[in-house]
């Protein structure tokens, strides 16, 4: 373990609003191979949570890796995680390092 080792953070977003309220770009076979948060909308669940930041890269959603998933597939996974009634939250594993 060293100072240059990438760090990741688990962020639990409660479904506190009717929308998640993030915009993502990236996915497999693009310049940005893992989805990156480009916008956080005020009043959305992600904004209310207060722990997600623009620029963070999403590594996992509810423990499912986004590596190798194309943009639409990654977006669908996140949308479904927010929509399902099985959980009242979505867990994001994020990193600041691109």
């Amino acid at each position: 373990p060293g100072l240059l080792e990438p760090t990741s953070t688990l962020v639990r977003v409660a479904k506190s609003a009717s929308t998640l309220g993030i915009a993502i770009e990236g996915g497999a076979n693009t310049r940005q191979p893992l989805p990156r948060i480009v916008t956080i909308q005020r009043g959305g669940s992600a904004h209310n949570c207060g722990q997600l930041r623009v620029g963070q890269v999403i590594l996992e959603v509810n423990g499912v890796s986004l590596r190798g998933r194309e943009h639409r597939d990654a977006a669908r996974l996140i949308a479904e995680a927010f929509k399902t009634n099985e959980r009242d939250h979505v867990d994001f594993l994020v990193t600041e390092f691109n």
Partner: peptide, 15 residues
């Protein structure tokens, strides 16, 4: 065949 030097940009999706 043309060799692509950079990958294409991604679309952006609002969730």
């Amino acid at each position: 065949r043309e060799k692509r030097l950079t990958l294409p940009p991604s679309e952006i999706t609002l969730l």
